[in-house]
């Protein structure tokens, strides 16, 4: 077995590389970011404990996602900090998700180019909400709108992004 320090470093590197992808996989089932981050942290604990049995021939992300899903289900079973999907609903979604194409680089690129098509104000709103993680009360203040209007705007932006991505997907397939 390699020395503990090597193992630790190797684990950190692999985990860090895949952390955003892991967070993304958790956010699908637990949309609140603080909750999802907690789950990713729990996943890190589980991964670290099981790391000696990790087969480096296997993709780390696939291996890690399995643990993340276990943690998602555990979380949904036990936590009641805020309203969450039922564990059964999450389990059904997991089966369907496995059957659908994964979120790959191509999709990420499509999303990026669709973002570029948004109006500057819409992009700022999206960044403030997702990237800077500003609360909606603050967004409402900054963008001089009611909170209700901010939520509506976010919904419209996401709708536009989905439609744009769908269009690009069709073009790509065609």
């Amino acid at each position: 077995m390699p020395p503990a320090e090597d193992l630790h470093e190797r684990f950190m590197r692999l985990f860090l590389e895949q952390e955003p992808a892991l967070l993304r996989s958790v956010l699908v089932f637990v949309p609140h970011r603080a909750d999802a981050r907690d789950i990713v942290q729990e996943t890190a604990v589980a991964l670290w404990r099981h790391f000696p049995s990790y087969d480096p021939e296997r993709p780390f992300l696939n291996w890690a996602c399995g643990f993340a899903r276990i943690e998602v289900r555990r979380f949904l079973r036990t936590r009641q900090r805020r309203a969450q999907l039922s564990e059964a609903a999450a389990a059904a979604l997991m089966i369907d998700e496995d059957a659908s194409p994964s979120w790959n680089e191509e999709r990420a690129r499509r999303l990026q180019s669709c973002r570029e098509l948004l109006a500057p104000g819409q992009r700022r709103m999206l960044d403030d909400y997702y990237l800077n993680e500003l609360p909606v009360t603050e967004l409402a203040r900054r963008h001089e709108r009611s909170e209700e209007a901010v939520y509506k705007m976010l919904q419209r932006i996401r709708h536009a992004l989905l439609q744009c991505m769908q269009r690009k997907e069709t073009e790509f397939a065609g």
Binding site: P20, A21, L23, R24, S25, V26, L27, V28, F29, P31, R33, A36, L93, W103, R107, A108, L111, Q112, R115, E116, L118, P120, R123, R124, L126, D127, Y130, L131, R158, L161, L162, M165
Partner: peptide
């Protein structure tokens, strides 16, 4: 919808 939300929330898209 959730995958888009997740992709935006996990911030692998570029800040505009």
């Amino acid at each position: 919808k959730a995958r888009l939300h997740a992709a935006l929330g996990a911030a692998e898209t570029q800040p505009s």
